[in-house]
Write a protein that binds this DNA or RNA. Structure first.
Length: 480
RNA sequence: GGCCCUGUAGUCUAGCGGUUAGGACGUUGGCCUCUCACGCCGAAAGCUCGGGUUCAAGUCCCGACAGGGUCACCA
């Protein structure tokens, strides 16, 4: 069993969801739960997100047996550190004729795609131009240093069948499967190659992943066959959804595990809630621990549909669990996370300059805690001179989105936010004053607060994002 | 659009040929109560549609429809 996230942003609840099922299944059968980092995409790689994945999974208590930080007999556990292995394996495939080098340029492929779309061709894909290159010619061109990728030679006829243990037999016609790129011209393997090679090398017997992978599974099966390896068992879990049933997304929902952690949801409740999204005990029990789930776990009780991630129900579960604690335990939990010394100290430093009595600290600092705010008292402050509410909403939304695209601002530190916000105003023709006040009101619900960017940094990205989202919705709901 | 997956109340689910279709969130009525919340009791709300198979179908088969995913030198 393994969970193999790629470090490309904040740790996603979908990753945690899949991890839960991998973890439970591994524990149930005494197998190993392996964490492997799939960092073969240099462009999307973001620093720090690997550590964030560790943090998120550990917060939930989903400890792995082998991984980059804990080691194990199958290391290394980062794909970027396994490059020689992929090179060796792809070489074997080429020698066997199961894969071939392809010298087609990006431009030619783009053009090919456009032509296919223009011709209303139902099946898009590579036309196989380099398939028939003689080994000698290919070798010569490679020796000349010509840029190339390596593709899998997918059979033209027949079909590839595999069993998904949640759905039964799934069949794909081979002629509809593209000659997948296995090795990129930048010297990195693609997901398909790295995944198959690693799963085999690490002795992965059961692949539990999201339904989004189901259409690439035949490619993987073909790859196992090309290598002459036995394929693992496959289980594709339904995808977590937004309320409108589309794949759970940052646009429409808080999807970072840290959002839930930082707003004070209980990790064990998160786990129980996610377990209910797809798993059922069979009786009417829905409140259970991970250990109970492990003891009970059976694939026949897992449903294949993609569940909506219902915040309301999570909230209800969390409330019930809070109520079930002794006040003593509640105190400990609160101090340990919400009112920890580490968290409080920087907040107190901010309040110290603005507060006169000890008792005023808590009310003053209130906006650093909790989730959504009541904008009733400051509703008028959400207006910006000469701009429509719709315009303001769009700008706020763009601001929140663009932060993610900025390598510095993404880290959400005060100086980075400051620089980013100023740049954002310049790019979008906004006065600093206008945007800053708007943000202040959105994030704090007040017109007076500590320095905006310190405040945002201290509130945390997820809390800010939630509130900005709230304000955007509020503005859109207003007419005009 | 091609291919693939899925289809029980608004949402998460139980059901695996014969049930008054069960539970939970949400919604809602009431009780409790100085208020709110909690708690307790109750209610409304569901088998996507159409064909088969069968004495009998939410349960099996086929088709339609709907939703989702996927068609990259991203994972």
């Amino acid at each position: 069993m393994r969970i193999a996230p790629s470090p490309t942003g904040d740790p996603h609840v979908g990753t945690a969801y899949i991890a839960l099922f991998n973890y439970v299944f591994a524990r149930k059968h005494g197998g190993k739960f392996i964490l492997r980092i799939e960092d073969t995409d240099q462009e999307r790689y973001t620093a720090g997100s690997e550590a964030a994945i560790f943090e998120a999974l550990r917060w939930l208590g989903l400890e792995w047996d082998e991984g980059p930080d804990v080691g194990g007999p199958h290391g290394p556990y980062r794909q970027s550190e396994r490059l020689p292995l992929y090179r060796r394996e792809i070489q074997k495939l080429v020698e066997k004729g199961e894969a071939y080098p392809c010298f087609c340029t990006k431009e030619r492929l783009d053009q090919l795609r456009r032509d296919q779309i223009a011709a209303k061709q139902s099946t898009l894909g590579y036309d196989g131009q380099c398939r028939s290159l003689s080994p000698a010619e290919a070798a010569a061109r490679m020796a000349a240093g010509e840029a190339h990728v390596v593709r899998l030679r997918v059979p033209d006829d027949g079909e590839t069948v595999f069993v998904d243990h949640l759905r039964g037999e799934v069949r794909f016609e081979n002629r509809l499967i593209d000659d997948q790129v296995l090795f990129k011209s930048d010297g990195f393997p693609t997901y398909h190659l790295a995944n198959v090679v690693d799963d085999h090398d690490m002795g992965i017997t059961h692949v539990i992943r999201g339904e989004e992978w189901i259409t690439s599974t035949p490619k993987h099966v073909l790859l196992y066959k090309a290598f002459g390896w036995e394929a693992p068992e496959f289980f594709h879990l339904g995808l977590l959804r937004n309320e409108d049933k589309s794949k759970l997304s940052k646009r429409k929902n808080p999807v970072s595990v840290f959002h839930y952690r930082d707003l004070g949801y209980l990790p064990e409740t998160m786990l129980n809630f996610m377990a209910n999204l797809g798993y059922s005990m069979g009786d009417d029990r829905e409140r259970f621990t991970v250990d109970e789930m492990i003891a009970h776990f059976d694939w026949s009780r897992v449903s294949a549909g993609g569940p909506v991630f219902d915040q309301k129900k999570l909230e209800a579960f969390d409330g019930a669990d809070i109520r079930a604690m002794s006040v003593d335990t509640l105190y400990d939990r609160l101090m340990e996370r919400t009112l920890s010394r580490a968290r409080l100290l920087p907040l107190l430093a901010q309040a110290q300059e603005r507060v006169n009595r000890l008792d005023d600290f808590i009310p003053y600092l209130s906006f650093f805690f909790g989730g959504s705010l009541d904008y009733g008292p400051v509703i008028d402050k959400l207006k910006v001179k000469d701009r429509t509410p719709a315009e303001v909403a769009t700008t706020l939304e763009a601001f929140a989105q663009d932060i993610e695209r900025d390598a510095e601002a993404r880290a959400f530190t005060a100086p980075a936010l400051d620089a980013f916000a100023r740049g954002f105003c310049e790019r979008n023709g906004w006065k600093n004053k206008d945007l800053f006040m708007l943000l202040r009101v959105a994030v704090t619900g007040r017109t007076a607060s500590p320095s905006l960017f310190d405040t945002m940094a201290l509130c945390g990205k997820d809390r800010c994002r939630l509130r900005i989202r709230d304000v955007v919705a509020l503005l859109r709901a207003q007419k005009g």
